[in-house]
């Protein structure tokens, strides 16, 4: 298994109360897989994604990356795992040009020795992400949502990570843009073998892309469905979000 977590729990303090967001979740993602994490808003799926990336430290439970336990994120770990967040308008520093934002991971890890090398790397990934060169010189406020999300994806993929958490990357976008972005992510997966944990609340989308799907509800992982089981679901139950036999395996 490339990435897995065992029994992670997390609670946040809100005012005087503690809210348990994750109550002992275990999931695993294999190399080259697209695993969908499905659930209603507020079920804890975003937090679980962040725990896997060690952006949120779990209160209890363990996270493994390539069978080594991750307690504090190392530089090597940060290079191999990436995040594509939900809201592209918010994901880039509003004062930076798109080029600088895409090049930032290279700079942080000191991977490009010369300016030319950096430029080539940025241009190559931007092209894969479907951005034109003119986009690179603009500020985030001058791009549309779809173009921004492409920039965010380019930035996440420039380090050639092995595992990427896509946190509802298309929920703020139009359907035609969503289709283009999801296709692009799938193409890149075919070429590089990256694994995705794809967080979404859209069952139709999940059905279209998932190799496997975890269902979350109220801070727990309540079920796991294989691709074939997802296909068999009727359109009606998809719309109503009634998932048959969901909790059978757990």
């Amino acid at each position: 298994m490339l990435m897995r977590c065992v029994n992670v729990s997390k609670s946040f303090k809100v005012g005087r109360r503690r809210i348990e967001v994750l109550k002992g979740c275990s999931i695993a993602v294999d190399e080259g897989e697209t695993v969908v994490l499905f659930g209603e808003s507020g079920c804890g799926k975003t937090t679980l994604g962040r725990v896997l990336l060690m952006l949120v430290k779990p209160d209890a439970g363990r996270v493994f990356f390539k069978d080594t336990e991750i307690t504090a994120p190392t530089r090597e770990f940060r290079k191999s795992v990436q995040l594509i967040p939900q809201n592209p308008d918010e994901a880039l520093n509003p004062r930076w040009r798109i080029y600088d934002s895409i090049a930032e991971p290279l700079r942080v890890h000191g991977l490009a020795e010369t300016m030319n090398e950096e430029f080539d790397a940025v241009a190559a990934i931007a092209e894969k992400a479907g951005l034109k060169e003119e986009h690179l010189h603009r500020k985030p406020s001058e791009l549309s949502g779809g173009e921004l999300q492409r920039a965010v994806i380019a930035r996440a993929l420039i380090l050639e990570p092995e595992f990427v958490v896509c946190d509802e990357p298309t929920s703020m976008l139009d359907v035609s843009v969503q289709a283009a972005i999801v296709r692009m992510l799938m193409d890149i997966q075919k070429r590089t073998g990256v694994s995705y944990l794809f967080i979404t609340h859209d069952l139709e989308l999940a059905r279209a892309i998932a190799d496997r799907m975890y269902v979350m509800s109220g801070g727990r992982v309540t079920g796991e469905l294989r691709k074939e089981e997802l296909r068999e679901l009727s359109r009606e139950s998809l719309i109503r979000c009634e998932l048959p036999r969901v909790s059978a395996r757990f």
Partner: peptide
């Protein structure tokens, strides 16, 4: 047509280019 075909349940084929 392009709009409908880009729905996940209808094949998720994007419209080419940008608006």
């Amino acid at each position: 047509k392009g709009l409908l075909e880009s729905l996940p349940e209808r094949g998720m084929n994007p419209i080419k280019g940008f608006q």
